[in-house]
Amino acid sequence: MAELLHAGGSGLHAWLLVTSALFSLGIYGLLTRRNAVGILLSLELCLNAAAVQFAVFNALRAPGRVDGAVMALFVVAVAAAEVVVGMALFVLLYSQRRTVDVTELTGDGRDSAGGPP
């Protein structure tokens, strides 16, 4: 059991399997969510998967260095910036249209329901 865990366990392929799955789940959410905030959540999932991937490659392919870890740190910072801007946009969107349903955001918005009075 221990050998199995060790041999097929925390090797590079196992890590990549997990991060790829996480990223793919993020893509699924990205394409299926109608709520803009839901899309943002899925996006966080993707970003996080990528950040972990960086750390994995760092630890497994270049031990003794921290380049991947620094990249993961940057990803966290970018994610923070993205959430701030996204939040501002969606709050504004919500206050103007009373909805954050992206399927209703086609056209110039003048013909959609719930527009500004």
């Binding site: 990549l16 399997l17 990223f23 793919s24 893509i27 394409l31 630890a59 497994l60 031990p63």
Partner: peptide, 24 residues
């Protein structure tokens, strides 16, 4: 969504499978 996610997953794995395995 499923097609895109699974497609991405397969392509990704396919591309990464050629990497040699390593451990922590």
């Amino acid at each position: 969504g499923v097609v895109a996610a699974v497609g991405f997953f397969v392509v990704n794995l396919w591309a990464l499978a050629s990497l040699p395995d390593a451990a922590v």
